[in-house]
Design a protein around this nucleic acid. Structure first.
Length: 547
RNA sequence: GCGCCCGUAGCUCAGGUGGAUAGAGCAGCAGCCUUCUAAGCUGUUGGUCGGAGGUUCGAAUCCUCCCGGGCGCACCA
């Protein structure tokens, strides 16, 4: 980190010295192949053309012109087409131990966000049924993205949007009312496109048990009204419970009905009209979204006077903007991806910057058990529920698995693997590494957090696994920063697997307690334990002391 | 038909704002327990990066076309 800055500065100066006036973008990064050093730059390749010299000659000039403070770099090499490779002095690597110790659970945090307010909206399931595994993936992803942004210095609000005003809710009410009628032995049918799951049968029975059978004799409009209220409340409560169990907390639950109550729909319509981006045609009111990159213009108010789903959604995001968010990040299922362009167009029509709104699309989840795909839940007759999955695999495994893959990959959740207690299971593997590091301190009867801080003698930690661990630890803040920038939590799970791998190898090969290197190795074990815990904690996964 | 996403080892996937011989895990094969957890470790086999062109000193990465899979194309939500 410190060495990194010194080298980048040194390279810039050197480039100026050899006659480069305007410096193009260049890279200084950790090479994949360790034989290429601890850091490498493509600077010579990038400026060679401008100088009219072969890249390798430019690299030699650069190295000659480069001045660095003493003790940072052990060796500099020119390699391949003109890369310059830097090998850091070993005691530079050990410096990370003091940093980790000093920062503790803050190690890995950054401040690139500078407190900018960001709204992360996720799950936002309709209150018409239980959460399924797809919602689970969205929940894990949204929560992790929110955590990443929090870690990098943004002011994050986790938000859940409830569609409690649309036609889906009418269908819920009708479906529930039908189940109530059936429960008292009358012929009634769940309407087309309604909700056929078993859970409404159970709910109807609970209603009758609580309200008495007279409930079924209510006039239909009254019955539907009551079913609507009870249905939404009940499903909301169920979803809340699932999410609580999953460890996901929201700062704001926003109800669509609030948009109507506060007349935000009308205000939004007026705003768009005033900006000249709406027009009437065929009795409907249209948004000229094609002016902002959409395929076709979109209806906001239908010819029958009612609103399309799009309008409240625009009003909702307009409200987010009014609440002072610099960014609104929405986590959406793949079945909504066609919707992105029109919402983005609406945001631009309202004059918001084009980086205000971002939709992260999550692909569908397939669940495999015993080598076969599991499609439906027995209880609900719908997709596999989040609750069933959690019961089977536990929260930690479910979260880790949902976060292992890029959001845009269609992924297969292997239930058997998630449950297994072996090295094949990546969650288990990472947690085990943490437990082993913890075990050393348990046996030593010492608290890893109260270890004497550096000075750690860097020249003592010389084994290849130890140097690898030090480099890997130092990389953590950069990995967090990159994961936050790209909204890709899978970078964290991947990092943790890699760190755990080296930790297991080191643990297996060397002893800590009672060795001449005990002091330094304890410091190393404490730092590894800390970083594993920080990474797991960021993702909402526990870091057990023992397993 | 049009749009978006994806196609990398037997399997599940990284790498994708161009960079050095394309990576990991699992599975397979061969080994390793007097040790702070063998709930683990070591070694090894395995790839025309879907295909064909193009841009470039350099392409898994960028562009075009084609093939295959997913999703979406409402005055539904």
């Amino acid at each position: 980190m410190k060495a990194h800055d010194e080298i980048v500065r040194g390279l810039r100066d050197a480039a100026h010295k050899i006659g480069v006036s305007s410096l193009p973008e260049f890279k200084y990064e950790t090479p994949r192949d360790p034989s290429h050093g601890d850091g490498a730059t493509n600077l010579a390749l990038v400026i060679a053309k401008g100088l009219g010299k072969p890249p390798r000659a430019v690299a030699e000039d650069l190295v000659r012109a480069l001045t660095l403070p003493q003790g940072i770099v052990k060796k500099i090499e020119i390699a391949g087409p003109g890369f310059i490779n830097f090998f850091l002095a070993e005691d530079q690597l050990a410096a990370v131990l003091a940093t980790v110790h000093a920062l503790g659970e803050r190690f890995g945090r950054g401040d690139t966000g500078r407190g900018a307010k960001v709204n992360v909206e996720f799950v936002s399931a309709n209150p018409t049924g239980p959460l399924h595994v797809g919602h689970g993936r969205g929940a894990a992803l949204g929560d992790a993205i929110a955590a990443l942004l929090d870690w990098t210095g943004y002011g994050v609000t986790r938000e859940f949007y409830v569609n409690d005003a649309g036609t889906q809710i009418d269908k819920l009410a009708r479906s529930l009312w039908a189940r109530v009628q059936q429960a008292v032995g009358r012929a009634a049918e769940v309407p087309d496109g309604g909700y056929h799951g078993e859970y409404l049968v159970e709910l109807a029975e609970r209603i009758l048990a609580r309200e008495g059978r007279a409930f079924a004799d209510l006039p239909e409009p009254e019955g539907l009204r009551r079913c609507r209220t009870i249905g939404v409340q009940s499903q909301r409560a169920e979803q809340e419970e699932d999410l609580r169990e999953f460890g996901v907390r929201f700062d704001v639950i926003f109800f669509e009905s609030q948009l109507y109550q506060e007349r935000l729909i009308e205000q939004t319509l007026a705003d768009l009209a005033q900006r000249g981006h709406t027009y009437e045609r065929d009795g409907a009111l249209w948004l000229r979204s094609t002016a902002f990159g959409d395929d076709k213009d979109r209806v906001l108010r239908k010819s029958d006077g009612s609103y399309t789903y799009l309008l409240p959604d625009i009003a909702y995001h307009r409200h987010k903007r009014a609440r002072g968010f610099a960014k609104a990040i929405d986590i959406w299922g793949a079945d909504h991806h066609g919707y992105v362009a029109r919402v983005q167009a609406a945001m631009l029509a309202l004059g918001y910057p084009d980086d205000f709104f971002h939709a992260e699309i999550v692909q569908l989840v397939r669940v495999m058990r015993g080598g076969e795909e599991v499609r439906f839940s027995k209880r609900t007759g719908e997709f596999v529920t989040l609750r069933d999955l959690l019961q089977e695999t536990g929260v930690d495994a479910a979260r880790f698995f949902f976060l292992m893959r890029r959001a845009d990959s269609q992924f297969v959740f292997d239930v058997d693997l998630a449950k297994s207690q072996t090295e094949e299971n990546p969650v288990f593997y990472v947690q085990m590494a943490h437990a082993r590091m913890s075990g050393i301190f348990r046996v030593a009867a010492r608290d890893p957090a109260s270890l004497p801080p550096a000075p750690v003698d860097g020249s003592v930690l010389t084994q290849p696994e130890e140097l690898d661990l030090l480099k890997e630890l130092a990389a953590f803040p950069g990995v967090v920063a990159r994961a936050a920038e790209t909204l890709e939590p899978h970078r964290i799970t991947g990092y943790l697997e890699g760190l755990a791998r080296i930790a297991h190898a080191w643990y297996h090969k060397y002893r800590v307690l009672g060795e001449p290197e005990e002091r330094e190795r304890l410091a190393l074990a404490a730092a590894v334990r800390r970083v594993l815990a920080n990474g797991l904690g960021l993702l909402g996964i526990t870091a057990p002391e023992r397993m």
